[in-house]
Design a protein around this nucleic acid. Sequence first.
DNA 1: AATGAATGAGTGTTCATTCAT
DNA 2: CATGAATGAACACTCATTCAT
Lengths: 196, 196, 196, 196
Amino acid sequence: MPKVGMEPVRRQQLIEATLQSVAELGLQATTINSISKKAGMSSGIISHYFGGKQGLIEATVRYLLSSLQRSLLQRTVQGCTPEQRLMFIVEANFAVVQQQRDTTRTWLSFWAHSMHDAELHRLQRVNARRLYSNLLYSFKQLMAPGKAREAAELSAAMIDGLWLRAVLNKADDAQFDSAQDLAKRYIQSLIQQFGV
Amino acid sequence: MPKVGMEPVRRQQLIEATLQSVAELGLQATTINSISKKAGMSSGIISHYFGGKQGLIEATVRYLLSSLQRSLLQRTVQGCTPEQRLMFIVEANFAVVQQQRDTTRTWLSFWAHSMHDAELHRLQRVNARRLYSNLLYSFKQLMAPGKAREAAELSAAMIDGLWLRAVLNKADDAQFDSAQDLAKRYIQSLIQQFGV
Amino acid sequence: MPKVGMEPVRRQQLIEATLQSVAELGLQATTINSISKKAGMSSGIISHYFGGKQGLIEATVRYLLSSLQRSLLQRTVQGCTPEQRLMFIVEANFAVVQQQRDTTRTWLSFWAHSMHDAELHRLQRVNARRLYSNLLYSFKQLMAPGKAREAAELSAAMIDGLWLRAVLNKADDAQFDSAQDLAKRYIQSLIQQFGV
Amino acid sequence: MPKVGMEPVRRQQLIEATLQSVAELGLQATTINSISKKAGMSSGIISHYFGGKQGLIEATVRYLLSSLQRSLLQRTVQGCTPEQRLMFIVEANFAVVQQQRDTTRTWLSFWAHSMHDAELHRLQRVNARRLYSNLLYSFKQLMAPGKAREAAELSAAMIDGLWLRAVLNKADDAQFDSAQDLAKRYIQSLIQQFGV
DNA sequence: AATGAATGAGTGTTCATTCAT
DNA sequence: CATGAATGAACACTCATTCAT
């Protein structure tokens, strides 16, 4: 039944099935069949829409990245202070987790794989720089440029480090909240230390 | 050619071939053939010595863990100050990297896989707790217990975060040194902040 | 080339290739490749249709059993005497052989393997009991129940014994016919001896 | 420690380990390792003494055959009647079973394999003919030669058939005894029927 | 004489991809 | 558009054999 306009729907369904499968089984054990079965479609459709497994994986990572971006933009409405905006950045980075419990593991799988996949590595660098840029932009409004750069770098590492340790320890929601709090308090201490 | 006393040699050769293969190809693409070819041995020998691929992977992670431990013990000779010891902990965690350039990517592959492998997850938790414990032990000599616990948690996250970002960005030696410096300076700032 | 309705055809083709391969090479030397090559298909299709080699072997035994059953039902049309029916039972058991020359060896391979395979053992018992039941049913119409049971047991053993010795000696058609005659005459002598 | 005269001992130990392994695991799953482990020796010794797995298997079958022969000779002391001797033949054929419970399954494995192994097939034919000859020799003393041949053939088939059905049904000792009784009574009925 | 380390061809199975329908 | 049957290379693993000791 050839319906028009089904493409974006099908693509999104497949991306979400991929997220689920990678979270459940890991990237290694995720197959074109485990995905298509979860999506309730045939295996052939993956090649049809994404050119192959690789393409679907990359599209899924791009979707995760844009989710993170949207998550941040939703929060940073106009008129918030630089300090508020920094807190929102932290929240956005941890929120991706809480929206979809499973998604966290998925990130780690993708980043590990990015070491051996050029396109994924490119996406990972975009993501790492975006976090740094977002932090830098706000820190610059609060301190000297040199200090701001160091603050941004340290904050980015602290956010990633807390997040990594939480994921690897299969932390529950409370532990994720606690990690998020530590990150926020760390940023506030940086502002106090370096701030004008 | 049955020589006696070859077992430890062969095991070590296979572990090193595994490290190389995972660094080069990733854990996903590392096969029993890619390892045995690198080791200059037949594929059957892996099952003979490690019972299978899984056993070799786990032995390799255990070897990495003991390397890290040895790296720390070499540094923390008797009579060093708590502050010195903290610097050594940082150095040990970054040094594993520099001894064997390839090893870094390997860690990430293993930890990502640990989300879906019980034994690897156990080893990862041992590692995460060991870093925390080592840090806590030294911080406790410099500040109140409550503050020490927070400092240990934050330092552990900062070390892991800086390390993760360096690895993912395929950082060169200079960038790793810079990350190591940032970690050290962060710990010093914690001592100044929380110290008695 | 996904044609619909191919499944039963493919399954039958694979079962027949299995019969051929086991007859030629034995169950031990029959591999997924020897079967798929004979069937003119790829090796992957066996897992696709039967879940694995084990599944195909079991399906093949079930097919042999149903062939035997069908062979008997074809003969025992209504209105035949008990004595005629007993002759038909003998014929059916020897006929499976003659329809497909190779099939005989196959039976023996399967039964030998049934000692170490639960499902095959179950199928073997079904087969052994069926022969006994079929014989008993007819003997009961000709003699006292106690005598009928003994006659059925002896006849079953005689049929299997003659068949086994013929198979193991790689008997030709004439020798199989001779064995069949002996079996028939033995049953007739039982009727004379025990019959009312 | 090179002891002289160890060869026959080692050979016998390996043959007995083979019998055990085939009974336990089947011929298919019996490996050079499963045998040598059971015998408490190294795997290499099998090639050393028997030239390979194949050679050991054949030696094991030859040992079984000679056991059967010995079992018969032990019974048929001089001065027994032809009828007694026939009973002894039946007993010998069923006794191999009872001496070593496991041995029964082993026979079947070997005979099934004999369809695809020239040397084993030769041994099987020797065995089949020996049973026939032994029976014929005694029957000839009790009836006309033509009748004796038929009686021998039928008796051989009955013995093998009862034995086969007992083995395949994993019969217990009582069921084996019952099968043995049926065989004896059948032979007696043949003597009454055909005897002078 | 006896070992067992080492080999590597061969096994059953998985799975991304293709393509006729 | 969408399917899923079919492929076959690649995988981890097994195992009879070899041979230096």
